[in-house]
């Protein structure tokens, strides 16, 4: 197999794994807040976290440029301080994948946490267990199927991310060309053999992840 194909596969997996790691950490935290707490700005947080799910990925990518670009709200001070910008790096692909996959994790985990019987949580508190302990020993194990399903879906979404990624990471062969971007390039340049191989591999990987997600979500607790 061509080294460029292997590179794209490797980069896609690397980006998806790192993005999913952060998606799980941040997603479970936000899902817990939305499922269990009442606070001012809850609806706003929910809307902001869900937006990347309904917006075109190119719009998400555009906002990422506004925030993280060399002249962006956060990107500018970082560039002035360190001389480094995230734009057009593989880390930008991680960022884009993180943002588009996060809503899937939040929504799946939130739904799973909301199904946990509130009496179980109250019992745990009256037994002297802290909120953190209750979360790790009661809520999380009881919501684990939903969390696994959310993780698998987020990983698959991160692997397949294209629109926002090409906006912030570009299409630099050997640096930022993840599988979806490499397929786009091959199709554009008429390299159909490579496009066929990448598309076939991607289809198999996606199907496997969907099967895994279905298995987790249909299993009983």
């Amino acid at each position: 197999m061509e080294s460029s194909v292997l590179f794209s596969i490797g980069l896609s997996i690397q980006v998806a794994v790192i993005a999913t790691f952060f998606v799980v950490l941040v997603g479970i935290g936000i899902a817990y807040l939305l499922a269990m707490k009442n606070f001012r700005g809850k609806i706003l947080l929910d809307v902001i976290c869900t937006l990347p799910l309904v917006m075109p990925p190119s719009v998400t990518g555009y906002y990422l440029i506004i925030v993280f670009g060399r002249n962006g709200v956060l990107g500018k001070p970082v560039y002035e301080l360190t001389g480094w910008s995230i734009m057009f790096t593989w880390q930008a692909a991680v960022l884009a994948s993180f943002v588009v996959a996060l809503p899937l994790m939040i929504r799946t985990t939130r739904a799973a946490l909301e199904t946990v019987d509130r009496d179980l949580i109250r019992v745990s508190y009256t037994l002297g267990r802290s909120e953190l302990e209750t979360f790790f020993k009661i809520s999380l194990p009881l919501a684990k199927r939903g969390i696994y399903a959310g993780t698998v879906l987020s990983f698959a979404r991160a692997m397949g991310e294209f629109g926002a990624t090409i906006m912030v990471a570009g299409n630099i062969p050997g640096r930022t060309d993840t599988m979806p971007i490499a397929i786009y390039s091959c199709a554009g340049s008429g390299d159909w053999q490579k496009a066929h191989i990448l598309a076939a591999i991607f289809t198999v990987i996606s199907a496997l992840f969907l099967l895994a997600a279905n298995r987790f979500s249909s299993s009983s607790v």
């Binding site: 009496d119 179980l120 109250r122 745990s124 009256t126 009661i138 194990p141 607790v221």
Partner: peptide
Amino acid sequence: SPQQRCMGYVFQSPALFPHMSAKENILYG
């Protein structure tokens, strides 16, 4: 907080933790 009051509470439903055995449920208290 409920954790600081040291009160035993038994609900209408037994509210046993379904992923734990009877022994684990009791020891959790």
